[in-house]
Design a protein around this nucleic acid. Structure first.
Length: 299
DNA sequence: AGCTCTTCCTGAAAGC
DNA sequence: TGCTTTCAGGAAGAGC
């Protein structure tokens, strides 16, 4: 499932093949995951691809319309979220087409950009130049760029569970279930901890853990759990480095305790019960009869 | 404010 | 064996 490292890997692949190309034609299969399929089919042909970037888990393709008559044409952006099973790849037009391929963007070099998505949880939309700043702003901070001070400010005062906040794209953009669990394990923080009850040291550790985990995952071209492949159809290798994600029942690499899976914030969460101690008073551990035991010493 | 539930969708795996 | 059921999950929206 594509999260920041997977999308970053796809974007790097597309950067090698798309910029400078002109779009000749668009063909669409199922369109229920496309914001405005008519606009897509009308506006893409003739447009030139300037660059490809990542915005959290979104791929953003910067386009300039072909409009020789009207000199200064406004850029627009083809923005793609890969959802759970989305794949973006450039292929030769006569390469075999995998099932569930619903968007074909023909390029001026005999190749085409294809979007394949088994479950169609992905999204495709067009964003005008005038809307791209607002689109970016309603996403949270880039996890690889956020400073410690800003990280603390965004998370440290919240009453929600830390796992829910890590997954909230309006706070941090790009972290999903795999890297949230892996980051919390590295920082030794239980996923159900309330964010504002964490110590400054724990927030610092988490800030660093998120960046280290994401950086390491990008280096290994992401995690291939089921369907994920990059723009060249290649699988990632970070799944072999997972310490907790989908390792429930297996021994913790640090202490040999069995990794557990629980639902936190509606999502399956994997953690080591010994390395990531449960919050006081939370179900699973006996609630203390002494109310003083439930006060938070750290704030 | 933040939680749970539901919806979207398909294929894999479990259940019978 | 072959059918049916269950589950998984990113994000958004409803309702509490």
């Amino acid at each position: 499932m594509p999260e920041l490292p997977e999308v970053e890997t796809v974007v790097r692949g597309l950067c090698a093949s798309l910029p400078g190309r002109t779009i000749l034609d668009v063909r669409l299969g199922k369109t229920d995951f496309i914001d405005d399929p008519v606009a897509l089919a009308e506006r893409l042909p003739g447009a030139r691809i300037c660059k490809v970037t990542r915005l959290g888990k979104f791929v953003s393709i910067d386009l300039v319309p072909c409009d020789p008559a009207a000199g200064m044409a406004e850029h627009f952006y083809l923005v793609i979220h890969l959802g759970m099973t989305g794949q973006l790849a450039t292929r030769h037009s006569d390469d075999p087409v995998p099932p569930h391929t619903h968007v074909f963007v023909a390029l001026d070099n005999g190749r085409e950009l294809r979007y394949t998505d088994i479950r169609r949880f992905g999204r495709i939309l067009l964003v005008p130049e005038s809307g791209i700043a607002a689109f970016r702003d309603r996403l949270g901070a880039e996890p690889l760029e956020i400073t410690l001070a800003e990280f603390r400010a965004r998370l440290g005062s919240r009453r929600a569970r830390i796992k829910a906040l890590l997954l909230d794209q309006g706070i941090l953009r790009g972290v999903g279930n795999i890297y949230a669990d892996e980051s919390l394990f590295r920082a030794r923080i239980h996923p159900a901890r309330i964010a504002r009850n964490l110590t400054q040291a724990q927030l610092t550790a988490l800030h660093q853990a998120v960046r280290e985990i994401l950086t390491a995952a990008i280096r290994l071209r992401g995690s291939s759990i089921s369907d994920y492949v990059d723009a060249d159809g290649k699988r990632g290798e970070y799944q072999f480095r997972h310490r907790v994600y989908q390792r429930d029942g297996k021994p913790c690499v640090r202490c040999r305790e069995k990794i557990r899976r629980v639902i936190v914030a509606g999502r399956s969460s994997h953690f080591c019960p010994r390395c990531q101690p449960s919050p006081r008073g939370h179900k699973g551990s006996k609630r203390s009869l002494n109310p003083l035991m439930n006060t938070d010493k750290h704030r």
